[in-house]
């Protein structure tokens, strides 16, 4: 923790993330209006004291929608990455632990998944499942685990022949115990780093899907669909696209900075070069 504070970029990222989380958690208390309250007498009002970020095409308060949207956007990020990390770690651990045949098959499967464009998988599966926020999380999760698998496998391969592992194995530790007690805890660093970076990507993916009309659907608000609604009026109702655009930018930036900072800090190679 101390080390994070010493790294200004990581610290900045952390502050951003905490602030966004705060906003998301306390959205109901912070919102001045019901995010779905329609007032067709006040359509497309520019920002003012009564509507901090203006109103949208149905007269809804953009500020309140942004606050509630942060919940959806972050939820999509967390759950999707959670799914990807679980799948990725599981397959990577098995491949790296058992090696041989199992490893070959899993890694070829990873190669197959990597050579089918992620976007196609997302699109086809969403078309099949119909877009809802849970399906979007599942789909993003199921199409972004391959990187984690490779990382975990590589980590396991390098740890597998360490003396303490071999010793534990010789003492009759079960495979499950070896993996969960010895190998996994020592591979946490890359998993954590890639999860933090993964959240950033998932938030961006959601906004891209919204652009294509396949993201979180109305009347629920997410940053992605507020931004997409606003893009038609970019030169007129600028508040409709500026705020969600900046929110996505800042949040993704925060996760990236924190992720990179963590990578630097947790990387053993960096320890001995501290000046």
């Amino acid at each position: 923790m101390k080390k994070i504070i010493q790294n200004p970029l990581a610290l900045g990222g952390l502050i951003i993330i905490v602030a966004v989380l705060f906003v998301a958690i306390f959205a109901p208390w912070l919102s001045p209006y019901d995010p779905n309250y329609i007032d067709i007498t006040s359509i497309l009002l520019p920002p003012s004291f009564s509507h901090l970020m203006g109103t949208d095409g149905l007269g809804r308060d953009v500020f309140s929608r942004m606050l509630y949207g942060s919940r959806i956007s972050l939820l999509v990020g967390f759950v999707a990455v959670g799914i990807a990390t679980l799948i990725g770690t599981f397959l990577g651990a098995i491949a790296g632990f058992y090696r041989g045949y199992i490893d070959s098959i899993i890694m070829r499967f990873v190669d197959i998944m990597l050579s089918i464009p992620t976007f196609f998988l997302i699109l086809a599966v969403i078309a099949f499942l119909t877009p809802s926020i849970w399906n979007i999380m599942i789909v993003i999760g199921f199409t972004s685990w391959m990187g984690v698998t490779r990382l975990v496998r590589a980590e396991f391969l390098s740890l597998r022949n360490r003396e303490y592992i071999l010793a534990a194995e010789a003492m009759g530790a079960s495979d499950f115990r070896l993996i969960s007690k010895h190998l996994l805890p020592n591979s946490l660093t890359p998993i954590i780093v890639s999860s933090v970076l993964g959240i950033a990507s998932a938030v961006l993916t959601e906004s891209g899907l919204s652009f294509l009309g396949l993201g979180v659907q109305a009347p629920q608000s997410s940053w992605g669909n507020i931004l997409t609604d606003g893009k038609e009026y970019i030169q007129f109702a600028w508040w409709l696209s500026l705020f969600p655009g900046l929110a996505i930018l800042i949040t993704v930036l925060g996760y990236n900075l924190l992720g990179e900072g963590l990578r630097d800090l947790l990387d053993p190679k960096n320890k001995n070069q501290k000046k």
């Binding site: 961006l204 652009f211 992605g224 655009g245 996505i248 930018l249 949040t251 993704v252 930036l253 900075l257």
Partner: peptide, 14 residues
């Protein structure tokens, strides 16, 4: 670092 990350983080279509 900040600049390249901003490049990554900005929603491209916007």
């Amino acid at each position: 670092t900040i600049i390249v990350f901003i490049g990554f983080a900005v929603p491209g279509f916007w």
